[in-house]
Amino acid sequence: MLTGKQRRYLRALGTGIDPIFQIGKGGLNENLIKQLSDALEARELIKVKVLSNSDEDPREAGNEIVSAINAELVQVIGRNILLFRRSEKKPQIELP
């Protein structure tokens, strides 16, 4: 569980990154969730965009991803989801 200070720090880091995954009309599937998990292990902080042609609600999609891969939902703004999970092999981000 992230504190408010940690969440604020991660939001600041997240402003400079572009979404690396997009959820389209196919929605969430096992393959996408596996790829998200692998990306979080490598990067720790990723941004996901829910496209306008998707039936998924960004907040619900974020909660579904978080419960599936044991990550933290940092922020949902519009159709963008910011996710964080500490890397088990090579932690890079130091939380305050």
Rank of each mutant, 00 (worst) to 15 (best):
G27A: 13
R7H: 03
L13D: 08
K5W: 07
I23S: 01
N31F: 03
L13A: 09
G4W: 03
A39T: 03
Y9V: 00
L10P: 06
L13V: 04
L83S: 02
D38W: 10
L36D: 00
R79S: 13
A12Q: 14
L28W: 05
K25A: 12
N80C: 07
R85D: 02
E64F: 03
V74E: 09
G62C: 09
I93R: 05
K49V: 06
I93Q: 09
V66F: 08
V50M: 08
A42V: 10
S67V: 10
N63I: 04
V74I: 09
E72M: 06
N70K: 14
I65G: 00
S67W: 04
D55R: 15
L32E: 07
T15L: 13
K90Y: 14
G78R: 05
R8I: 07
T3K: 10
A68L: 12
N31A: 15
I69G: 03
R86N: 08
I69D: 06
Q92I: 07
I46D: 09
A39W: 06
A68Q: 14
I33G: 01
K34M: 13
R86H: 10
P96L: 11
G14Y: 06
N29D: 15
S54W: 02
Q75C: 06
K5A: 11
I23D: 01
R8S: 11
A68P: 05
P96D: 02
E64R: 15
K47C: 04
A71W: 01
G16V: 00
I93G: 03
R43I: 06
R59A: 10
P96R: 09
M1L: 11
M1V: 10
G78V: 05
R8A: 12
S87P: 00
G14N: 04
N53I: 07
N29G: 13
G27N: 05
I65T: 04
V50H: 01
V48L: 03
G27W: 13
L83I: 03
G62R: 00
G16E: 12
Y9I: 00
L95F: 10
